[in-house]
Design a protein around this nucleic acid. Structure first.
Lengths: 101, 101
DNA sequence: AAACGGATTCGACATCTGTCGAACTTGACG
DNA sequence: CGTCAAGTTCGACAGATGTCGAATCCGTTT
């Protein structure tokens, strides 16, 4: 963001990723997924960390998935979520401003 | 985000900043403000870059201001916006994931 | 003081969003 | 096969959001 102006064609999908992070629950979900040891975390470990229903957690995970910030994989009865580091780094680079002298 | 889990008290205000970036118009406005030569830009230079009304641009600038991402200063007839680099860097650091080996 | 121009605020409206409980899907296991 | 447990999807609903034009505010200029 510091040097480069965002082209308007890219603004939509980038804004979509930021929008996905723009909810306190989703931001914490993303934080837990991104810091998961082994690079993945089970929904069954995410759900009990919040005071909202499982269906709402599932909805938020879907938003994160559709924004490209995470991927999901089912193994046996459980579903595991992983961060998509490349997109996260892209967003990070966008916000990286030069230090004040 | 890589190493640290976001405390739930901080999640609200951080999510608010991400939410402010979660609209294509606002993301492009932020991009223009952050890359402005001289560290500031006049609303009169922002408005003509978009195909929406001036009142809507003003609304989006208000959202960015209330999220803490920009500040505004009036000089004579014009209002100038500046990026708040500290918050931008904070968000950037949050999304910075380690490179894959 | 009156008129003008840049910018914000207001009121209205259609659409989107977060939440819930109920219903459904999918795999495991007796 | 029948049941159970983990997740997702569905339908509904209150509240938030993006947009516009009209009204207003605040300096400048005549």
């Amino acid at each position: 963001m510091a040097q480069s102006r965002i082209p308007s064609e890219a603004a939509g999908s980038l804004a979509n990723a930021f929008k996905a992070l723009g909810d306190p629950i989703r931001l914490q979900l993303m934080s837990m997924i991104a810091s998961a040891p082994g690079g993945e975390i089970c929904v069954c470990d995410l759900t009990p960390a919040f005071a909202i229903s499982g269906s709402t957690i599932s909805h938020h995970l879907k938003v994160l998935k559709e924004s490209g910030l995470v991927t999901a994989e089912r193994r046996a009865s459980w579903v595991y979520y992983r961060p998509q580091a490349a997109l996260m780094r892209r967003l990070s680079a966008l916000l990286d401003m030069p230090e004040p002298d």
